[in-house]
């Protein structure tokens, strides 16, 4: 699969995400925030960082970057899109995913190897996992508290759209311990933890994040 990784001004984890995409058996295609086309990629990753300096709100300005017009349109046609950390914030600001991410309830930046439970192994990005599987990957954010109104939250839960949930500790005040969610079609996934930092034993907490980058290939050949 050819997977595009978008770089915005202030993105930090684009190179790690490209590397994870390649380790997962795909070709990584670098996309620029000012691009008006997606170069024919099969899927897109919006990586972590502080796009546009987190000015206004995290992801609020990135949402209107030229490349996002294409990403939103492609997501609407069913193209898989994965948003990690700042990428998740951008997906929420873009209304591709419901809810929003606000400042951590304890007001401090958090950086830890976080235990998660995969709640939905049916999405385009999580089919390499099994439902209920526990994985440990890095979490690092200052504004990762997932919030949504009660009705939206009930809908997300009722439709099984929570993709990963925090275990052991709720690190940022997210409602219902929600770490990541998907859209109703299952092609758009956003999560605060960083699977791209857990794809090699040498540099991470393990390789528990690799499934996010192998799911597309496994599904294509299934």
């Amino acid at each position: 699969m050819r997977i595009g990784v978008v770089t915005f001004p202030g993105t930090l984890d684009d190179v790690d995400a490209q590397r994870a995409v390649r380790i997962g058996g795909n070709e990584a295609v670098a996309l620029w925030h000012g691009d008006h086309d997606l170069e024919g990629v099969d899927a897109v990753v919006l990586p972590g960082g502080f796009s546009y300096g987190d000015y206004l709100r995290c992801g609020a300005i990135s949402r209107f970057a030229p490349v996002m017009t294409e990403v939103v349109a492609a997501a609407g046609r069913g193209m898989p899109v994965l948003g990690i950390c700042n990428g998740f914030q951008i997906l929420c600001e873009s209304r591709l995913l419901p809810g929003a991410l606000i400042r951590n309830d304890h007001r401090k930046f958090v950086c830890r190897d976080q235990l998660l439970r995969v709640e939905n192994a049916e999405t385009a990005w999580t089919s390499a996992y099994t439902e209920g599987q526990e994985i440990r990957i890095a979490l690092k954010n200052g504004e990762g508290g997932f919030v949504a109104d009660a009705e939206t939250l009930a809908r997300i839960e009722g439709e099984g759209r929570v993709v990963v949930r925090y275990l052991e500790v709720n690190p940022n005040g997210s409602l219902n311990d929600i770490a990541g969610i998907t859209n109703d079609r299952g092609n758009v996934v956003g999560l605060m933890p960083h699977p791209e930092h857990a794809v090699e034993k040498l540099t991470g907490s393990g390789t528990d994040g690799l499934g996010f980058f192998t799911s597309l290939v496994e599904r294509a050949f299934a």
Binding site: I102, R103, D105, R107, D149
Partner: peptide, 14 residues
């Protein structure tokens, strides 16, 4: 303004 039901950590710090 943050909606009334939304937690406001900055306001709490102040």
């Amino acid at each position: 303004m943050p909606k009334p039901e939304i937690l406001d950590p900055q306001g709490k710090a102040v």
